[in-house]
Every structure is written in C-alpha cells, then in structure tokens.
Design a protein around this nucleic acid. Sequence first.
RNA 1: GGCGACGUAGCCAAGUUGGUAAGGCAAGGGUCUGCAAAACCCCCAUCACGGGUUCGAGUCCCGUCGUCGCCUCCA
Length: 466
Amino acid sequence: MPLRIYNTLTRKKSEFEPIQAGKVSIYVCGPTVYDSAHVGHAMSALVFDIVRRYLIYRGYDVDYVMNFTDVDDKIIDRANRLGVDPFELAEKYIEEFKQNLRELNILPASEHPRASQEIDAIIKMVSQLIEKGSAYEVDGDVYFRVETIRDYGKLSGRKLEEMNAGSRIRVDKRKENPMDFAVWKKAKPGEPAWDSPWGAGRPGWHIECSAMNLSHFGPQIDIHGGGNDLIFPHHENEIAQTEAITGKPFARYWMHNGMLQLKGEKMSKSTGNLVPINDFLNDHPGDVIRLLVLSSYYRSPLTFNSEVIEANQRALDRLLSGLRPALPNAVGAPEAVLSELAEQIKITQQGFTASMDEDFNTAGALGHIFELVRAVNQARSEQASDDQLAPAQAALKTLTDVLGLELKPPELTTTGADAFVDLLVALRKDLRDQKLYQLSDYVRDELLKLNVIIEDTPQGSTWRWE
RNA sequence: GGCGACGUAGCCAAGUUGGUAAGGCAAGGGUCUGCAAAACCCCCAUCACGGGUUCGAGUCCCGUCGUCGCCUCCA
C-alpha cells in the first residue's frame, strides 16, 4: 500500500514519491517569535511531528527543518515598546518555544534556521531576482514583480486580476502592481538593519524561507508544511520567488494543517484569542494535546475547549489502562482468548498502517489502537499473565510511539515510597480478612489522598499512582 | 464581494475506488466487589435540508441553509 498525501497545490491526494528514493526533506514554517507560543502553534508542530514520525516508521530517512522568523515588524515593535533589543527578545521566545517542543515530545529538528542568520543568502537571492527582472528596487525597497510569474496564485487558487479587483489595501504608488510584495525593506531609523546593495535594510517576510530552503535543501524539497493561514500570501510568494530563481517546481507536496478553534474562532496571537502552551502544560501532560490533535484530521479545524480536553484526558487514561500489568496471581488465559488477542494485534497493525497511509488519518489509526486496548484488557480480565499480555502491549507501545505519545504511567516522585505503600496495602488486606471494613476503607481513602489508587480483585489488591 | 474547506449520535470524531455507519468522552443497564474503583458485557445515529444519477449514496451531481478559514500580520 502506498502512502498518499493531500497536496494543497493539486487539491487532491496523490501517492507520495520522494525526489530521492528513501529520503524525505521536510520544511515547516515555524512561528514569528515576538511572544509566547500558543496551543495553535503546538498543533502545527505536532501535526508535522506525527508526519515525520510516520515517515520514519515507513523506513524513510527524514531531514526536518523548522525555521524561526526573528526579523519582523512585530518583533521590532514589541522590543521598542519594552525597551529591549529585538534580537534578545527573539532569542528569549525561541528558547521558550524549543522548551515547549521538548515537553510536547516533538522530535528535535535537524536544524532551526533563522532569518537573521541567512542574510547573506537572502541578499544574494534578491540580487538574482533583480538580475532576472523578477524584482525591482525603489528608494531602498525591493519588490517582487508578480506579473513575471505566469501562474502566480496557483497554490491559493487565485488569479492576479481578481485579486487586484478585490484589493482593499491602500495601494503603494511606487509598486508596479498592487500585489507586488517586498523582498527587501529599507530600514527606518532605529531598526535593525544590514548593509546591502540597496542600502541599509532587512529581509521581507517571505524571502527568508525561500533562502533557507535553497541553502539547506537546494532547489527542490519533498514536503513543505505550515498552517493553512500561510497559504496566501506567504507560501504563494515563497513559490514565486524560489521558482523565479531556480526555474524548477519548488516543493512536491504542500501540506497545511487546519486552525485550532477557540470559542468558535481561530486561535490567534494578534486577536489575543489564545491559550499559551505553557499554561496548558502546567495543567496537563503533553500527551493530552497530542491526543486531541490525533483525534481528528489534521486539515480540518480543531475544536479546543475544556470539555474536549477533559475527554482526551480520559481517553489518555484508557490508553494507559492497556499497559497495566496482569491481575495479581493471574493463572493464565484460555487458548481461545490468546489467539484472539494475537489476531487483534495483526488487525490493529494493518488497520493502523492503512489509516495512516491515507493522508495520515490519525483518527482512524487511533480507533484501531483503542480496539487493541480493549483486547488487552479483555485478556487481562480473562486471567492472562504478564507474559501473555506482553506481545500485545509491545505492539501497543510501538504504535503509540509512532504517533509520539509518551504514555508515561504516573510515577512516584519520592523514591522508596513504594515499599511503604506495599506495607499499607498488606496491612489493609489483614483488616479486610478480619472484616474490619471501616479501618480498611480508612487506609484506602487516606492513600487516595496521597495519590495512590487501590483496586481490589478476586485474586488480591493492586495499587498504582494516580 | 472573491477563493477554499466543512456540516455524521448529548459532545469530539473516522468512514479508501458508492453496497445499508470506526473509535473516544458522557449517559443508561448488567457482571464483579463487603462497599468502592478499575476492567469487561449490553445499549445509544440513517449521516444539515431539498432534488437528481444508480439495483443501491454519508460517499457522485445540482440547489438551499449554516459554520469556519484565506483575501491584512498570523501555525
């Protein structure tokens, strides 16, 4: 079964064929670092982390680059308002975001290039664009000449004429065409700037990604990803610039994730409609937001609210239930139960791959995983031993690992406490044997306050940390 | 106004090339238990609405209504 990917450029799913057999290059647009990242950014990072992990699972050697935009109007504005250096401000939020990525169990990128570190490459690109007649300089600004691109608008499905007609932007008279966009901006006093053939200035927004792609991957890449709010103008312009220089199709597959919806609207920094990643992670394990992302199709809008988060927290608990050990003193399950379990492993593995192959249908894949969880729990309640559960639990762990779920069982923070809990549980058994239920319940209740959950079974009691 | 996506049970959400609807959460019933918890079993939808194509459509076509995104910085 081939892997199929929905390509924004062609508006349909097609079989994935990398440029070079066995290797995949992925470039994902990261955030503009002028403030703390919110869970919408987390969603995007998670989506492409899952894509990456699955490609690795499929045997590809994946080179993964995510950029940071650290030169930008908003960063400069924010820095000026706070009276700090814009680069220091950017640095602070880059470090914070990287920490977020680690806590979300996102595989480290091969590289995190930044606009400020690509200036030479950018200036070279701008020069080339001017030489080719694809860009022109006006008073220290350099604009891309969109009319030189015959298929400008191919990614977002727009036509130049229509955009001009509907344009509500105040038109800059110096532009030849209202849709021409800046590849190099003249510096205003007090702004960070670099020397260039057109005077002191800084890169336009889109050019940095084109330059980074060229320097890290060359003229063509396999997958270019980002939020669907970047389709126009950002990615459209990236294509225009890059292809104007290379003359080759830029990215083979354009993948875009849908927006996280908070209170019925897109979560967004500029409107303040957001939940910072830090706040979320203070209250929930990273697996919860990952599970939320996994539970729907990455291209669709994703509902984010307390109800949904709560549901996914429970769902996470259920996944964890599949990894619990056998019942105490389990005598072994009947052959029929074991063969059914073995069969379910196969069904789940096949279903998982089939779902993921269809443009990373993680919700479908998760459905199969939950079926395996049920089978494991079934076998356990039928007296399966740890050894008998092991293959299914290993399969479960392998598949959830492909999705990047950590499934860390809650662990004790105080080393050595286990022995004391064991002692109390043993004591409680004696109390129960003597039918001193008031006392035994007291032990259970008090332990629960200490985050120890006791569960009684016909063969004895088990306990675990909450 | 233009372009695009979507509308499946109380909530979230799958559904490959059309053949009578995954999964999670919640609710209800049951098994187990001294009680509880957990787990297990059972139960819960005709797919926004109206037409059409077809032996047969959630799944294709047309229309209506509604939601969201982009068109300006944005994951």
